[in-house]
Design a protein around this nucleic acid. Sequence first.
DNA 1: GTCGAGCAGATTGTCGACAATATTTTCACC
DNA 2: GGTGAAAATATTGTCGACAATCTGCTCGAC
Lengths: 244, 244
Amino acid sequence: MDATPPPQSVPTTVGRNGRGRTAADEAYTRLREDIVRGRLMPNQRLVEVDLAVTLGVGRTAVRTVLARLEQEGLVVHEPNRGARVRMVTEAEALEITQARGALEALAAREAATKATPAEVAFMRETLAHMSACLKAGDLLAYSDGNARMHAKIIEASRHHTATRLIAGLKAQMVRFQYRTVLVPGRSARSFVEHTRIVDAIEAADPDAAEAAMRYHLSHVADTLREMTSAHAQHHASAPDLVHF
Amino acid sequence: MDATPPPQSVPTTVGRNGRGRTAADEAYTRLREDIVRGRLMPNQRLVEVDLAVTLGVGRTAVRTVLARLEQEGLVVHEPNRGARVRMVTEAEALEITQARGALEALAAREAATKATPAEVAFMRETLAHMSACLKAGDLLAYSDGNARMHAKIIEASRHHTATRLIAGLKAQMVRFQYRTVLVPGRSARSFVEHTRIVDAIEAADPDAAEAAMRYHLSHVADTLREMTSAHAQHHASAPDLVHF
DNA sequence: GTCGAGCAGATTGTCGACAATATTTTCACC
DNA sequence: GGTGAAAATATTGTCGACAATCTGCTCGAC
């Protein structure tokens, strides 16, 4: 009842290997998603055979997947003692936010000299959309627009290294993005800050763009810092969203 | 003569597993070193069986090692086509330097509030040592002191995330550190810049420390930019060193 | 002579089995 | 009844073997 029925081939996820995508890659994507989306709790043990069964691949594949995830910082692995989902403390979350901020400031600077008119136009549209959401009081939609905005700036920077590093940092934070603060009144200020950033990018002024982004992100970090100290007092307070 | 003699155990590198260090870890360290130290050329193919023989481990271990190195950005891996040492272009080197600069600026900021008196003292000593090297014209020794200084600042920041990211970026650059520029007169200015950074850290002034580091690193990036464009003209010019 | 089909050779992807290590349980002894 | 050794269990570390895939080459048709 609990043993894998037959050792007969492996039609589980495979069937047809989706063009160049190996089964291990598939497993990597799936497990990564499970961790990032929070379906696997922090500190939860990751037993190789269990994962192999779940993901429909051999233990070897699971092993390389775990190695990748460890290097990525999503998993910790002690020799002979197995792997666990990495626990990200609030202090670490602050660190990650700071590092991400430093890199996004660089991205903004680069975007100021490299963004195409189409990209700037997209930013303007997003800005308008965000403004509308703000007026309508739809903070969740505002947060989405916010994410799109930052993604566009990063894309416009054409800075492969910064993009890669930011993506990695973001993955470690997703758990926190689901329960981060929206301090009352923060949205309005956030919107103004974003407007300044786009202005600087459109004006092709790298220094101004970097400074504006830095200013914006320092506020985000401050907000996060306040949140964590508040969190220490009354646990599980209001449902929150940080506005980047 | 060329086949591994007997399937008898594996005393190759092992003998006694150096306390918690698995054979795969050993292999990882060794291969990483070989890439970083330049013993393996960029774009060189990394055939799994060959590496297995060289490193004295099985192919499975090699495979996880390659997965880690790929995630780390030292190796590229195409499905069914194997792995190669990643080729870092000069444009990418500039990117990496910029990203590293952004993170080191953050580290300097943190160091300003977290450095211990002992750490500041060490920086002062290093500064004095660098000054002496400069007077003696020993640029190689100066470069060493320079590296120690930056390492100390990063350590003093106690910023685990920034430290980790910087280490990763550094590894990708080592090949370039062996052939980067020392523009005439750069050392003297570099020394002044370092002094300002340490001053700010000692004064526990985060803004000043970050600004000083940013100023310093922008010069490094400029130098690197000039070098790469010059490199395009007359290849393999003077032996060079970049002063961070 | 050039082009494509088809056939080696080499290399990677995947798996199950065995050995080594850590963890838990059992049980004899004080 | 508590304590420690020693077996039993669970899990990871490692390997070789087989299948799938890619690469380069040969060879026949046009």
